[in-house]
Nucleic acid binder design. Structure first.
Lengths: 153, 153
DNA sequence: CCTCCAAATAGAAATAACTTCTATTTATAT
DNA sequence: ATATAAATAGAAGTTATTTCTATTTGGAGG
């Protein structure tokens, strides 16, 4: 938690109860959430908290490097903890939604591709985590149409 | 075009003028489009065509394997030809928006990552294409907040 | 401590991107 | 030709997110 406070300060953001609670949710659950997921979980402690506030906080936390946006094909923005300051990617469990970092990146940014100068790249991997692999297969979380990212292999 | 007609038939979809025109747009431009992009380009030939029809068609074309959804962090659904049945990714020019396929994929799907069984992966590369690199730098297209995918390097 | 002010919050209203609905039309198998 | 399952049109609805204006608050400086 210490390190997140430092990141907030470094980004010129105040340590508000709301903000710390949001970070706490990510730390405790180690998964990705949508704005609404966060909002519903904040209701107990912050009954007067609205969705716009959650959206604003999530975006600030992305900007100061605490969270990262995670792509799902469901028209919602998903956010997850961005643990390292170094370059890394993410793997998501398609059953429980857990997110882990992938530390070693095989992508060579220096390489020219079809005449393009590469500026950035984004890799997301979807899989089934060890825990879910052991669990009963018919207990799968149900995902909506178009939920999965492409390039199945 | 022949092969796309076969895919339509295989999926139990009719060969309507609208549908063929949409496929034609993708074939001719070799880039990705949003529903609105398609809709505005159809106006000349199909003046009575509405957006809902475009959305329905694009989704049918994804379902029968002619199109693929392409992820951008801009809250719109992007679609592109799924040219090969083979595995590939995309590189996008951050100035003009052009998309090219990346044929060779460095990602090893067989590898176990942190105990996960990999199901699918998604790679998107952002860069500046040859044409835009030559053009005046202050002519950059302005992109909205959150437009770029993360992991700048 | 106290005070100030930039930053954060609340809640209402607006926007944008789809999606759904009902009625009508059309491609194609027979 | 004709029947029918699928496709279309246009209006209306939904959902996720953003913007707005006013009010409140964390924390630097006195």
């Amino acid at each position: 938690m210490e390190r997140y406070c430092n990141k907030l300060k470094a980004g010129g953001l105040k340590l508000t109860p709301r903000r710390l609670a949001i970070i706490g949710l990510f730390v405790d659950h180690n998964t990705h959430f949508t704005a609404e997921d966060i909002w519903s979980r904040l209701q107990k402690r912050f009954s007067r908290c609205g969705l716009p506030g959650v959206y604003r906080n999530l975006e600030s936390l992305v900007e100061c490097g605490i969270l990262t946006r995670i792509q799902q094909f469901d028209r919602k923005k998903h956010y997850g903890l961005c643990a390292g300051s170094h370059h890394h990617h993410h793997i998501t469990c398609i059953r429980c939604g857990k997110v882990d970092n992938i530390e070693d990146c095989a992508f060579d940014s220096a390489k020219k591709i079809k005449g393009y100068t590469v500026v950035s790249h984004f890799i997301q991997v979807n899989g089934v985590c060890g825990g879910c692999a052991k669990a009963a297969p018919h207990r799968d979380r149900v995902w909506g149409k178009g939920m999965f990212v492409c390039s199945e292999k």
